[in-house]
Amino acid sequence: MIKVLCIDDEADIRQLLVEELSEAGLSVIEAENGEEGLRKIISEWPDIVICDVSMPVMNGHELMAEIQINHPEFSNIPFIMLTAMADRQNMIMGLESGVDDYITKPLDLELLVAKVRGCANRIQNSRIVNAPR
């Protein structure tokens, strides 16, 4: 089962994401900021990360940089950013530094689920291909 980590400081949004993604047949874990998210990435090794940009303690971009620099073993995990600030420049910088996709708030849940499922399918397919025969 594909495991998705949802990182957002807003508990209500986290709860809605968990509901939606669980219903889509994914295993969902939560974190309320970047720092907690990093701990969960290391301990839980999720397949996909959905992460808010603006958060206390450690924000989405800081988490991304932290993974790239200090935890490169996780840098292949698909990383979808949620942002309330549709700042084009920030998005370009994020994409260049390894963010796979941006989804702006308010969220189109259908679109989000489609993206996550697409990723999940690719991951599952590659696992089949790479599985020892």
């Binding site: 807003e10 209500d12 949004i13 809605l16 994401l17 509901e19 939606e20 309330a84 708030k105 308010p106 969220l107 189109d108 849940l109 259908e110």
Partner: peptide
């Protein structure tokens, strides 16, 4: 986002 997501749900 909360309102919209709740409505979608």
């Amino acid at each position: 986002t909360v309102i919209d997501a709740a409505a979608q749900r």
